[in-house]
C-alpha cells in the first residue's frame, strides 16, 4: 500500500480558556497548506481513504486535502494518541493518508519503518510536512520513500 503520514498545518496559539482541541489553523497556515496540496497533486497523489484526528487543526488540514480524495474521509480518535495496532488495522485501502499530531506521527513512522517507536526523533515533521511510506502496513516492514517539508511540497506545486 501507499501511505502518506501528514502533520497538521500551522495552527493558532492557545488562547486562555480555549480547549486545545479547538485551536484552528491560522490564515497563513491554511494558505501554506493549500500550496502543499498543490504539490501533492503535482505528484499525482490520490487517496482511497483519508483518516484524520478529531482535533480542529487536523480536521481543517484534512478538509484542505479533500481534492485528493477519491474514496472517503473518516475521523478517528486513534490519531489523537500514541499509535496502536488498531490504527494500523484501520489502514485497509491501497492509498491512505493520515492527518495527525506530533509526537505521534513521528512515532508512527519510526514504528512502521524500523519497528521501534522510540526512534521517533529520527523522523521529525514540520507542520504540514508529509512522509511517504510504501509496503505492507506492518511494524518494521514499511519502506520510507521520502519525507518532504511543506516548503519542498509548495515548491513542487508552484506553476512554472
Amino acid at each position: 500500500m501507499k501511505l502518506l503520514i501528514v502533520r497538521h498545518a500551522i495552527a493558532a496559539d492557545p488562547v486562555e480558556g480555549q480547549r486545545d482541541s479547538a485551536r484552528p489553523l491560522t490564515s497563513a497556515g491554511k494558505r501554506k497548506f493549500e500550496g502543499v496540496v498543490r504539490g501533492l497533486k503535482r505528484l499525482d497523489v490520490k487517496l482511497d481513504l483519508l483518516l484524520h484526528s478529531p482535533l480542529l487543526r487536523a480536521v481543517e488540514t484534512a478538509d484542505l486535502m479533500n481534492a485528493l480524495v477519491e474514496g472517503e474521509a473518516r475521523v478517528t480518535s486513534l490519531l489523537a494518541r500514541a499509535p496502536t495496532k488498531a490504527l494500523i488495522e484501520a489502514l485497509d485501502e491501497p492509498r491512505v493518508a493520515l492527518v495527525g499530531h506530533e509526537p505521534y506521527v513521528s512515532e508512527l513512522v519510526a514504528w512502521l519503518v524500523t519497528g521501534e517507536r522510540q526512534l521517533a526523533r529520527a523522523f521529525p515533521f514540520r507542520k504540514g510536512g508529509v512522509a511517504f511510506l510504501e509496503g505492507e502496513p506492518v511494524p518494521g516492514q514499511m519502506f520510507l520513500a521520502s519525507m518532504l517539508t511543506p516548503a519542498q511540497l509548495r515548491a513542487i506545486g508552484k506553476k512554472k
Binding site: 480547549r19 482541541s21 479547538a22 484552528p24 484526528s53 478529531p54 482535533l55 480542529l56 480536521v59 475521523v75 478517528t76 480518535s77 489523537a80
Partner: peptide
C-alpha cells in the same frame, strides 16, 4: 462515533 462527536464540538 466518539471522535465524530468530539470533532463536531468545533
Amino acid at each position: 462515533c466518539q471522535a465524530l462527536l468530539e470533532a463536531l464540538e468545533n
